[in-house]
């Protein structure tokens, strides 16, 4: 019972880790490269949650100073994740460009097919 209550208290962390593990699974188990990149994005967004969830204060407000409010959520994770999102789209675009070039060179975006072909040669 106590463990269950702890789990409900940490529901946000459980889901964050579920997303992380799902992203890891897609990267490890799937051989299509576009899908791998999307799995990597899911992993990345789970890290955003891992940073943002502890920064929230119940009853707090967005960190924009106004005399009407006294309690603000933690602004530091927001700053770190803001830059991470934009870097994330940069890496995604670079990965997609590599996938396009691989498709032009090998005619496939499947990891296993490319490994097979390299073994045959």
């Amino acid at each position: 019972m106590e463990a269950l209550l702890a789990l409900v208290d940490h529901y946000n962390f459980v889901i964050t880790i579920f997303l992380m593990v799902a992203g890891l699974y897609v990267v490890v188990a799937r051989s299509n490269m576009v899908k791998k990149l999307i799995g990597l994005s899911i992993f990345q967004t789970s890290v955003y949650l891992l940073y943002l969830e502890p920064g929230k204060i119940i009853g707090g407000t967005a960190p924009i100073v106004d005399p009407k409010f006294t309690l603000y959520s933690n602004p530091l994770p927001h700053v770190l994740i803001l830059t991470a999102i934009v870097v994330g789209v940069g890496t995604l675009a670079l990965g997609l460009a590599l996938v396009v070039r691989i498709h032009e060179a090998y005619g496939t975006t499947d990891d296993d097919d490319i490994a097979d072909r390299n073994r045959d040669e």
Partner: peptide
């Protein structure tokens, strides 16, 4: 989670630009 700046970025980057780039890449591959 009160991260309004981050939400704005995620909505415009993740839902718009990433999708367009992924669709562009899919157009060039399978």
């Amino acid at each position: 989670l009160d991260a309004v700046d981050v939400a704005m970025t995620e909505a415009s980057v993740g839902a718009a630009i990433s999708t367009v780039l992924l669709l562009g890449a899919l157009h060039l591959t399978k």
